[in-house]
């Protein structure tokens, strides 16, 4: 059942054929700045905007320096004044260093701040544990009023950012660092707040979020299908609000649920799925794939760290097999 697995090429060593989610975001933000006077870009010296021509939106780009608490607080003040700030920092800084500002200044006031959090999950790769964000989904999904989205590729990044534009409250957008593989061209359109069904099957459901987890889920599903285990793959790109209806429908139609995420195994996607299923008393076992209760093992690029930390097709297959009692 565990057939040969070809892991995606490490984008740090290969020519990136597609833009990374943060590059897609950067280019779209220039468009937003020029199309909508309310939009403000608050940077924390990320370097993402080096050399960018903002056109007539240039005066609404402000580099507030390496100071994330001030970044979040200033965003709240701007939003309270009728602006729509896009704040830029890394996922781990947005959700741990500046968490209190995110909670009290932004979420408590339900202000339309967009937090563009790059370097989500293990995408910071060799930058190490200080730059990995394995806690951000756990932290953000706790906060009332906050919408939490995890785009899967360049196309979904652009789509979800466009759909988030007019949301009245705050939005956390988890972005990556480097380019990641595209979703299959026949993937259904992505809709904020709605799970994206990438495969249909009535034995197993794999729920995934983020670029590599979704690809691992698809790869595992294809191997499982070949072995006679018809598998549904749900891309839960919106962690909050959770598409409970789609999740429950898939879980009811399955004999087991496996979750995959680039995150600590506690607190994030797997937890929200397990909580939902347990609370509704659905009689399906749940298995969670993510980084265990430790700081990520090893050093190196994103795909290496995923493998090194057990976020692999093999792990999904093993979890599925065990959960199905085969």
């Amino acid at each position: 059942m565990t057939g040969p697995v070809t892991a995606p090429a490490d984008p740090q060593s290969a020519e990136a054929p597609v833009p990374s989610s943060r590059e897609v975001y950067r280019d779209l933000l220039v468009e937003f700045l020029n199309a909508d006077e309310r939009v403000v870009c608050l940077d924390s010296d990320t370097g993402l905007f080096n050399g960018v021509d903002f056109g007539k939106g240039a005066e609404r780009y402000v580099n507030l320096g390496i100071a994330e608490q001030n970044l979040m607080g200033a965003a709240a003040g701007l939003a309270r004044s009728g602006r729509t700030p896009y704040v830029n920092t890394m996922a781990t800084f947005a959700t741990t260093r500046a968490l209190e500002q995110l909670k009290l200044d932004i979420a408590l006031n339900d202000l339309p701040v967009r937090i563009a959090a790059t370097h989500g999950g293990l995408s910071a790769g060799h930058l190490g544990a200080t730059h990995h964000a394995l806690e951000d989904l756990a932290v953000t999904r706790l906060l009332p009023n906050l919408t939490v989205v995890v785009p899967t590729d360049a196309t979904t990044t652009a789509e979800l950012l466009r759909q988030a534009q007019e949301l009245p409250g705050p939005v956390y957008i988890r972005l990556g660092r480097d380019a990641t593989p595209d979703l299959p061209s026949d993937a259904p359109p992505v809709e904020l707040g709605k799970a994206q069904r990438l495969r249909e099957g009535d034995v197993l459901t794999i729920v995934a979020t983020g670029p590599y987890p979704v690809h691992l889920a698809l790869e595992a599903a294809s191997a499982l299908d070949a072995a006679g285990v018809a598998t549904t793959v749900l891309n839960l790109h919106t962690i909050k609000p959770l598409d409970t209806r789609a999740l429950v429908a898939a879980a009811r139609a399955s004999r087991a649920v496996v979750t995959v995420e680039e995150h600590w195994v506690s607190g994030g996607l797997g937890s929200t799925v397990a909580e939902t299923i347990a609370e509704l008393g659905l009689p399906v076992p749940v298995r969670r794939i993510g980084v265990g209760d430790r700081f990520a093992a090893g050093t190196g690029g994103q795909t290496h760290l995923l493998k090194r930390n057990g976020i692999t097709v093999e792990a999904v297959l093993a979890a599925a097999t065990e959960a199905l009692g085969r």
């Binding site: 507030l64 003040g77 700030p85 009290l104």
Partner: peptide, 30 residues
């Protein structure tokens, strides 16, 4: 802020001046 005239909830210290930077930036843009 449910009280008329209160602009923002505060209490945890060190939050007001960053917010003030945002309000002042907004005034500048306007």
């Amino acid at each position: 802020p449910a009280v008329p005239g209160v602009e923002m909830p505060t209490g945890s210290l060190g939050h007001g001046l960053p917010q003030g930077v945002g309000f002042a930036l907004a005034a500048r843009f306007d």
